[in-house]
């Protein structure tokens, strides 16, 4: 395996039960991320790379690979712009080893 594995390749090893169409995390006000948040630390610090910055400065969130750690919610302490819940029971990451 390459010594600099991309996070997508790693997540591929994990087991998930995706709750299709019902993401458990959402951005409350997407405009705020695009215009009022210079740091956009979620796009760097999410360990599963769920947040990406688009060319126009907007943040795109895809929760399918989420490891349910809580980083994005806690780290957004300047704006509190992340709506974070646990997935419905049984859904989300299912650690084989943990």
């Amino acid at each position: 395996m390459s010594t600099a594995a991309k996070v997508e390749e790693k997540l591929f090893q994990n087991r998930y039960k995706v709750d299709a169409g019902r993401p458990h995390i959402s951005i409350k006000n997407p405009d705020l991320c695009a215009h009022d948040c210079d740091a956009q630390q979620c796009a760097v610090c999410c360990p599963a790379g769920c947040y990406t910055t688009e060319g126009n400065g907007r943040i795109v969130l895809i929760t399918d690979g989420c490891l349910e750690c809580g980083t994005c919610r806690v780290i957004c302490d300047d704006h509190r712009n992340v709506e974070w819940e646990y997935p419905r029971g049984g859904y989300g990451i299912l650690f084989k080893f943990g």
Binding site: K10, N14, L67
Partner: peptide, 9 residues
């Protein structure tokens, strides 16, 4: 062989 990647606070 890497079989799982995890994160936790």
């Amino acid at each position: 062989e890497m079989k799982e990647y995890a994160a936790h606070l």
